[in-house]
Design a protein around this nucleic acid. Sequence first.
DNA 1: TGTGGCTAATTGTCTAGACAATTAGCCAAA
DNA 2: TTTGGCTAATTGTCTAGACAATTAGCCACA
Lengths: 382, 382
Amino acid sequence: MTAMIIDRSSPIPQYFQLQTWLIEQMEQGVFRPSDRIPTEEELVRITGLARATVRQAVQNLTNMGYLSRQRRRGTFVLNRMSDSGRRTIVGILVPDIRSGYAPELARGAEDEAARNRHSLILCSTDDLFVKADLQSDRLIEEGVNGVIFVPTAASDDKNLRIVEKFTRRNIPVVLADRTVPGVTVDFVTTDNFQGAYALTEYLVRRGHRRIVIALSTLFSTERERLEGYKKALTDMRLRSDPSLVFASSVPYHEKRYMEYARDILGHIDSITAIFAGHDRIAYLFYAVAQDMGISIPRDVSLVGYDDLPFTHSHPASLTTVHQPIYEMGLESMKRIMCRIRGEGGGPHKVVLKSHLVERSSVLPVRDTKGKVSRLSLQKEQS
Amino acid sequence: MTAMIIDRSSPIPQYFQLQTWLIEQMEQGVFRPSDRIPTEEELVRITGLARATVRQAVQNLTNMGYLSRQRRRGTFVLNRMSDSGRRTIVGILVPDIRSGYAPELARGAEDEAARNRHSLILCSTDDLFVKADLQSDRLIEEGVNGVIFVPTAASDDKNLRIVEKFTRRNIPVVLADRTVPGVTVDFVTTDNFQGAYALTEYLVRRGHRRIVIALSTLFSTERERLEGYKKALTDMRLRSDPSLVFASSVPYHEKRYMEYARDILGHIDSITAIFAGHDRIAYLFYAVAQDMGISIPRDVSLVGYDDLPFTHSHPASLTTVHQPIYEMGLESMKRIMCRIRGEGGGPHKVVLKSHLVERSSVLPVRDTKGKVSRLSLQKEQS
DNA sequence: TGTGGCTAATTGTCTAGACAATTAGCCAAA
DNA sequence: TTTGGCTAATTGTCTAGACAATTAGCCACA
């Protein structure tokens, strides 16, 4: 006979014990999808319980979607995998679905979600804490199973509060792109330090010595890029001049950053290259330069960061660092799904590789601004 | 005493009769949210049923979310309204969240949804019927309350099938931007005919006579634009030359359309302006023209349609027609919400106004240019 | 071959009870 | 005031049965 299924002395209700046993049998493949399980009468014989008790257990499992009952035919195991997998909803909190890399990120997450019959709820935060806060309440009400969160431009503290709102409710969170110091959840980013290092190195090797960097220090990504820039300079025996660092403490804002650009391009005599914190900033430089009658790259070289999609079709093609944003969305969703499936363990850190894309916004230095370029000029002349 | 609640001779199960009665009491406000309903024992007295039967009824209602039970305290009526009102989810099916106006559209829909505590599930179809079909199945499984659908590049028939899938299940659908002939649901679009008419008129008034139009006839929007273009020409006493109409039957595809562009720009002598079916096509013309050493607008004028966001920052600023895409998303969501709230009536047709945005991709034609080109064309033909 | 009715298996509905577990609220003791 | 225990109310669990409804599959009959 079967081993004792029901422990009558246990404080756990007997119908519940039977339920658990039935689920176990299904999970271990003893009862497989579309199999018929024992009839109520048989279960009464097997367990020694009253039929009403057996019935309670079976009825519950039916309500929970494990079983399906048909008069006269019996009770059958449903394929719950596909069913429970289907009801998964993941929220994605991005600054603005219209701008930057958000569309690419969302699409990566969406594709991975679709592959697994999950759905993606879209939330734009406009990089504001208040909006993120409201949106996260809504997601919680909606009963999402997980969240992909691009931290806002607010303080670390506030971002942390958002994350905790979810984790307190056992809703897994993955930070995408930007991270928050002190956070204990999974995150997926790219190697911003390495990328910026390579980009700076690229400029220096082409004779650039006075490279302005313009970005916001509000985000971990741009902070890392700044560090990469500094490290590359010191590694190449160049002092990183603080007057060349335009580190704003406000997030990207077209009007505002346009003024920075105007300011920087106003001192064009003292610089040879501009490292824009990301492509949108770079395009602002293009626009402002055109206004001011400055030619890129003839008068000054420019590099960006991100490799946003329209970079390709843009007639003035920008040398930049390609970030695998789509893959970042994909990986974020993969991590969320692992967590939803119940994977434990400390926070995972996924760092994706980015790579330099050489286009035509950088020229080697040819004038009297740098020693190396003077040498190369002499060579060309001779 | 209360009227007879249970009809013991009815074939309707008695627990079910009790259930129905309880729901009625709640809906009629006899038992109101957070009220305590009679205890099982009291219900036994009232109905004359066995406690197990009463229990079955109450338990079912608990499972269905009508009631909440607490040991020793009693059974309480839940506020089901707020619960079901909040659970509104709307799906949005766009070609690709990364491209064209999809981000703007999604954001409009999202903002309107957020204002009403609704959520938006994002689905990209890649303009393919098969994907749209799969995604719509998923949305139905997810139990969405409404759908915003941008018809795919597939046949009208297939798009209709997608729409019907939802309507058969009483899920309201709004078509956004593109419509499908013969469809009987609400739709929101812009006045493509008027916009194209105005744009063509604008070109003609600047002396352009030979205006190539390049677009796909797959979508209602572009078909309407083509009609607007033709009407404007005939209204201005110009014959619309079929050889100037490049109407492709395939959807936008970079490589493919690049060849069209190359082809058209190869015959630049016989034309003075190009009307690109939408901005992305226009940007292809920029790129190809640059390749071929052709200057826009000096050698040929160019107009687009849509006014995609990056139009602004693009250094070669395109004269185009601004479509209120954000508002389109907003209005689509508003219509869906009306339908979800149960508003009846025939299909609503919302047409938003677009307007011409004059930038610098068009130059007036000097008389000689028109004449010369006409002559050269005649030579070629003879 | 098809048809209609019978039978037995199975789940669905229901009764009449018993005892268990939880806990709000009261009351007495510290 | 706080603490701890008691009590009664209420839902939770369980038994042992009965009859109802549905229907797959068989069998007999046309």
